[in-house]
Design a protein around this nucleic acid. Sequence first.
DNA 1: TTATAGGTTATGATATATAATAACTGTCTC
DNA 2: GAGACAGTTATTATATATCATAACCTATAA
Lengths: 81, 81
Amino acid sequence: MTTQENRFLKKVGKNIAQHRRKAGFSQLDICAEIKMEKPNLSAIENGRQNITALTMLKIADAIGVDVKDFFGSPSSSKKHE
Amino acid sequence: MTTQENRFLKKVGKNIAQHRRKAGFSQLDICAEIKMEKPNLSAIENGRQNITALTMLKIADAIGVDVKDFFGSPSSSKKHE
DNA sequence: TTATAGGTTATGATATATAATAACTGTCTC
DNA sequence: GAGACAGTTATTATATATCATAACCTATAA
């Protein structure tokens, strides 16, 4: 896994998490909707999983956004610091 | 695999093929660039593979487009008919 | 203290994406 | 006809995404 690839997965995961929170859902909400276990969604949102197209589709549908939205530049607000 | 999922993979594959051709590359060109075998790229472009995020990234980089471009509505010109 | 909610990490089993090879379509050119 | 080029289909092997469970952390609240 190159650092570019690592950054890419982290970016996608961050976008998923941001859109999910913006839509008012918890990880568990989405997991219930698409029948996924929460550790797996957590791994995706943290960029530790090389997510597939269909999994992206399911998550996007559950959140109510377009898959395309997962590939922009995430809002760059750091979590805490 | 639901029909919605099937349509989604076909759409993504069609977008990949269209962007690749528009950029003037053959399947073999891309395969050589990213070290993928041509049957696999063929399967992806025909929507028979649930492509992963990193594979999309590699293909997009090789073509010279953004991954986001694979998720729009493809130009709806039929191949022959 | 105890309990709940939201999220993370570790781990094992199973399904499947990818790697790889061979054989097969046309289509075009010689 | 033969040869090359672009793409497809079938197939097996290997790597890994997903499924699933348990345990953990940090708040917040009773």
